[in-house]
Design a protein around this nucleic acid. Structure first.
Lengths: 126, 126
DNA sequence: ATTCGTTATATCTTATTGAATATAACGATC
DNA sequence: GATCGTTATATTCAATAAGATATAACGAAT
């Protein structure tokens, strides 16, 4: 079967023709998922707000879940990605480390290339 | 910061250096996930065994879950991907449609290209 | 008619996940 | 030392997902 024949057939499989190739990427360490889209957004918001609490609220994520996520990241990572401080002028706060900034930057680039890949693959379906 | 500098820094983030880029791909229809790695394997096993039941067992998946998965696929798809028959010489059985075979073939090709993509991205971390 | 293994379905239980709430510790500022 | 908003943690409740079990219907073969 030729390639365009097959693509046409697949296109006909769904009633509504809005077919799309999509996916998700992450960085693994020791076989365990380490860094995906969720953490990236959370770290970015911590950088922006200076607070786990506020970052979680902006993501409509519970503080507990955000904290557990960060705790995992920090435990899996050699050096902590989020530096927290309790007490102080405005009750404390959090900042992200240089490593975290690098991870964010890397993942951003990765996503750009991945988007391109997904677009190309979606094109093959049309 | 130059690219190799950053990659080196990221490599140092995890204590154990076994960093890897990984991910998952699927085909979406109408914004809803339609066809991922799980269904592919199940369909392949149905093709191989001629039975939802046996396919599910080989995947260590409950029959219920397998059936629901297939039911979803058949409902979302214009033409059914799995054709079932009840009763008969050996109690019945199931076969996959031509469309299913095409989807499997397409997804297989897709995964090959995706593996290459992942390998390239993993290489950037080393 | 009986047997067979399968599909199809319902029900119940269990496990996992997530949300919600409460509270202690913290330390700079006033 | 009282206040403040935050981190850190435990506990409880709700919702969702997964698993286990049971059973009817089916139809070819015997």
């Amino acid at each position: 079967m030729k390639s365009n024949e097959m693509d046409k057939a697949i296109k006909d499989i769904l009633a509504n023709g809005a077919l799309k190739v999509n996916g998700s990427l992450w960085v693994e360490g020791n076989g365990k998922r380490f860094f995906g889209p969720g953490p990236v957004e959370l770290l970015e918001l911590i950088q922006e707000t200076g607070s786990i609490n506020q970052a979680a609220k902006k993501m409509k994520m519970s503080y507990k879940k955000a904290w557990e996520l960060i705790n995992n990241l920090n435990n899996m990572s050699g050096s902590p990605l989020v530096i927290t401080s309790t007490g102080g002028d405005n009750g404390g706060g959090s900042a992200i480390s240089e490593e975290a900034r690098q991870l964010i930057a890397y993942h951003r680039e990765l996503r750009v290339r991945f988007s391109k890949f997904l677009e190309e693959e979606t094109q093959r379906l049309k």
